[in-house]
Computed example of a mutant assay.
Amino acid sequence: MWTKIVPITALIASVALSGGTAHAEPTTPVGGAALGSRGLVIPAGVKKPPTSKATSYVIADADTGQVLAAKDAHGKYLPASTIKALTALTLIPKLDKNQKVRPSQNACNQEGSAVGLTPKVTYKVDDLFKALMMASGNDAAMALAETNGGVPQTMRDMNALAKRLQAYDTVAKTPSGLDQPGQSSSAYDLALIARAGLANPDFRRYISTKTTRFPAPKGHYEISNHNKLLWRYDGMIGVKNGYTSKARASFVGAATRGGHTIVVSIMRHEGFFWDEVASLLDWGFSVRGKAQPVGQLVNPLPDPALAAPPARAPATPANSVTPAAQPPLLDTAASRQSDSTRTVGALVIGGGLLFGLVWLGLGIRRRRARSRL
């Protein structure tokens, strides 16, 4: 068991160009060397966290990003429906919440947990997000993905956002979390995703709503949030739980007390975990600010659109360019991080620009050589 604190190390990053976008390829554990341990990692001089049957977990201070304790933080496991937090985080800024959607039969026929969508009803996107995050509707996940241009496009968007968050353990294959070969996440990544989501007011509204009326062919019916701690734990904000027979139980949640927020994520739990999560949250509140952290929830990387702005067009009224704005939820999440991790994005982007210039120079020389033939 680790009790000695290992200082947070800078990421050694290599840069690969893919479609003109630079991506970090970390060679050390994201968030600190100690987080690479498969065993329990806790600060020296504090009591152990309560026992948990989870194979992997992270307890973190959402305000500072400090990881207070971890067990196999970067272990890759099937995420089940906790991946819906990434689905929501990706699509909330992209879809108009007042847009009307008539779901396809394919969406309505999704297996597993469902809210009961029907092609006979037109739903607002806002309704679908409630169904996604409250009732864990796989049908709602598919309807939202189809509204975003289809599953392939939504997977590209989700995985691009995961990379921007530096959630490198996460590979999304479905918008719902239904098991697929190659799909994965980690307790560390779930904490990163949750922390970014908490900065978005709509995300917070969906995850914290206990019950709501949902459209039906004749009127409405009531749906309830699957997160039992919303009723049991003082200050619980919410986030997402999940379960499949292969993934077993997973959960990521956040609670606020005394103006401070703690995030707990667990993966591959075999049984009833609600009381364990409550105890882990209690422990996080008890040691927050009193112990040296064992790691750090890192900053989101800068928006590639801002890092490499398009070439200027002639300044005429008919031809003007407006740079894409960075999603405010990620701006806010980054602003809450500590200075200890802000150098990571600069290293990655700086390396990416240097590599890009070299690549461009080689391309120009090759074109000139061909022109002489």
Rank of each mutant, 00 (worst) to 15 (best):
L301E: 13
F285Q: 00
Q292M: 15
V277T: 13
W274M: 10
F273R: 05
F273E: 04
E270A: 14
V294R: 02
P293I: 10
P302S: 02
G271R: 14
K290A: 05
E276Y: 02
K290M: 09
H269T: 04
R268F: 06
A291W: 10
E276L: 01
D275F: 08
G289T: 11
M267I: 01
F273G: 01
E270M: 10
L301N: 05
P293K: 14
E270W: 14
P293F: 12
L297H: 11
S286Y: 04
G289Q: 03
L301A: 08
F285Y: 04
G289V: 11
M267S: 04
D275N: 13
F285R: 00
L281T: 03
H269R: 01
W283M: 11
A291I: 12
S286N: 07
D282C: 08
G284R: 12
V287N: 07
P302M: 00
S286E: 09
A278H: 03
F285T: 01
A291S: 12
M267A: 05
Q296H: 10
L281D: 02
E276M: 06
W283S: 05
L281Q: 03
F272M: 08
V298Q: 09
Q296Y: 12
L301R: 07
G271D: 14
D275Y: 12
L281E: 03
A278T: 06
D275P: 03
P302I: 02
F273K: 03
S279Q: 15
F272G: 05
F272H: 14
G295E: 02
L297V: 10
G295V: 08
W274Y: 15
K290V: 05
Q292H: 14
G289N: 08
L281G: 00
F273C: 01
